[in-house]
């Protein structure tokens, strides 16, 4: 397995986790913010699908999602749900960013798409939560 494969595998695991986490948030969000979360979840599903396709095309079986993931903190209200959404995006962005140096060509394009989607999702969630600053200069930089 190449370094690019390892990085993209980590990205796929992160995307599985992100999709699971968004699934647990919906009940705590009002109609406006639930739309923000739904957009983010759709973006993560698209990234997951692109990664699965990439591994399948390379003749590798992509690992499926785990039955459940441990969330960093229990979610009890909308503010907590949005904080979790921001945390998911920031963590997933780190994994995508780390893949940039080990990828080239179509793999790097996919990696950049992943990093950009996380940055956009994080900005939307911060804006919905009133978190400042609403944007960061270097998404994914630890």
């Amino acid at each position: 397995m190449t370094a690019a494969d390892e990085r993209l595998l980590a990205a796929l695991r992160a995307e599985h986790g992100a999709i699971y986490a968004y699934g647990s948030l919906g009940g705590h969000l009002d109609p406006v913010t639930v739309a923000v979360a739904a957009k983010a979840e759709t973006a993560h599903r698209a990234l997951r699908d692109a990664l699965v396709l990439r591994f399948t095309a390379a003749g590798t079986t992509a690992p499926p999602a785990e039955p459940a993931y441990t969330l960093p903190s229990p979610v009890t209200d909308q503010a907590g749900a949005l904080r979790l959404a921001v945390a998911i995006e920031e963590r997933t962005a780190e994994i995508w960013r780390a893949a940039l140096a080990d990828t080239t060509g179509a793999d790097r394009r996919l990696t950049l798409d992943g990093l950009s989607a996380c940055a956009v999702n994080a900005a939307r969630a911060r804006r919905a939560a009133g978190i400042k600053p609403v944007t960061v200069a270097f998404p994914g930089r630890p």
Binding site: A93, R97, R108, T111, L112, S116, C118, A119, P139, G140
Partner: peptide
């Protein structure tokens, strides 16, 4: 690539 990728992602946001 990581620096430039972060700049592109920040701008997308």
């Amino acid at each position: 690539a990581p620096l430039l990728g972060s700049i592109a992602a920040s701008r997308a946001a």
